[in-house]
Design a protein around this nucleic acid. Structure first.
Lengths: 267, 267
DNA sequence: ACATTGGTTTCGCCGGACGGAAAAATCTGG
DNA sequence: CCAGATTTTTCCGTCCGGCGAAACCAATGT
């Protein structure tokens, strides 16, 4: 039956996914027998799958009516994926353009649990071993990416992150809270973050935030290059271009800078 | 080990879900070894899960770089769930209100593969065995729900559905294409659909469409009751209330009736 | 009270999932 | 362009845990 005669299919997994599909596709909560009969699988089996899927919160069990519906974990994963997917899709062309102009490494990162994680990265041909790899988690206070985001986080969250220990990455890393706070105020005013050798010696980084429709800094773009290549002139140019790119992405995400008192659609 | 000592967990499924979670949570595509080491599972096992998840299109395998990312099926399920979840959440209070007023069965349905499927249903206490059950699929041409949607579908899609055979449900079912077309034109003009005994003898139904932000009729609300209880007076009242309710849901979905030439955010 | 439907539990069997190891493919850097 | 390292894929014997029939239980309606 499988079009691709793949020998590495694990049946329990495959069948359980069918169950998940069915539940998600039906609009309403479904019962054990409903699933079993529709999928032509023994009740016992389906029962176990439903239990397992529920245990993993991919499904939710309505004890009241003894029905199963889509669960929180599934929704949360979907949400994560959607925002990331959208972000990447929007940012990629801008990043490509930046790469074309400067021929330096361009990074895209998001926040996750108080760290920045690199989500996309376009490397310059001539790149001399840039610091980060895709998926890496770096501290927020030692990267321009992180600082760009940190500066625009709501008071609450920023404070919370500043509470955590500020470790050294290099001798230049700013670990003094008040110094960092002052830097962040600067960044907020200017709209971009610059970091030189704080995360890695000899490397310099310019970071700018990307905002979503709630003016929340969901991500950041950065250009990173060896210090020696970054003349003042190039730096100024890069800042301008980065801000333009990030602005475009933000706009596409629905960010409206001058917005206030959002008359929302919430009942 | 499991906090909930559930004996009905099937390990392969559970572990495979962990794999899926991991892939979805990481922003970028991941490699086999990455997953294996992170989850502390043998590579062979993870390999099989990845294969299985990919076969079900929950993941996508980038043959180029030999990495795995979130797949189309997952995204499509997420999309379905999200719209349904949102729709239901918005519609439920309105439906409840309608039930309180009329004490007749209130239905919410969406389109799926040329049929209407009942997504939510509030039954009157005094209900005398209403026709449909949650999750049922009914033909579009024999229900007010279906007709309300059909009337506002884009030309293309409407034609397509009218092409399919129009079966009888009762002696009153309209199966003549041109007659149906005329009815639909009426519905379009008036903004609601009425059906009497076309889907089930002795039962009458009023249906109104719900639109999303693209002015697409994604769903419909209906009130259905025994014919004899629906006096002209009550009918008029019901139409008004239904339209109001559907209007509120549509608005919450972002439907802006007078919109044209949407100056979008697309770059 | 009985019948019917839907959910949970038991239990023994045996298939297929498992994972170590080896083979193949792919990626390094010299 | 070739050797070494790393990652992916294949193979295979073991055995465990998934399977499903059937029994059991709970709820509902006749």
């Amino acid at each position: 039956m499988p079009a691709t005669p793949n020998n590495y299919i694990v049946q329990p997994v495959f069948k359980a996914l069918k169950v998940l599909e069915l539940v998600a596709e039906k609009g309403h909560d479904v019962s054990l027998t409903e699933v079993a009969s529709e999928l032509k699988l023994p009740k016992t089996t389906v029962f176990r799958y439903l239990q397992t899927l529920t245990a993993a919160s991919f499904l939710r069990h309505d004890a009241q009516k003894d029905r199963y519906g889509v669960g929180g974990r599934f929704r949360s994963l979907a949400r994560i994926d959607k925002s990331l997917h959208g972000l990447r899709t929007l940012a990629m062309p801008e990043m490509q353009r930046l790469l074309d102009i400067f021929n330096e490494t361009i990074n895209l990162a998001i926040v996750s649990e108080g760290h920045v994680v690199y989500v996309e990265m376009l490397e310059a041909k001539r790149a001399l071993r840039m610091q980060a790899r895709l998926g890496d988690r770096h501290p927020m206070h030692s990267t321009s990416l992180g600082k760009a985001i940190l500066a625009f986080l709501p008071e609450e969250e920023r404070k919370a992150i500043l509470m955590t220990p500020l470790d050294f990455k290099t001798i230049n890393t700013v670990t003094d809270r008040s110094a960092l706070s002052r830097q962040l105020a600067d960044i907020r005013r200017r709209g971009y973050a610059i970091e030189t050798g704080e995360n890695e010696d000899g490397s310099m980084c310019i970071g700018v935030p990307i905002f979503d429709e709630n003016a929340y800094p969901v991500a950041a773009l950065s250009l990173s290059a060896p210090e020696r290549r970054m003349t003042t002139e190039i730096t100024v140019e890069a800042v301008a271009m980065l801000r333009k790119a990030a602005g475009a992405v933000s706009a596409a995400l629905g960010y409206a800078p001058e917005e206030f008192a959002t008359a929302s659609m919430a009942g």
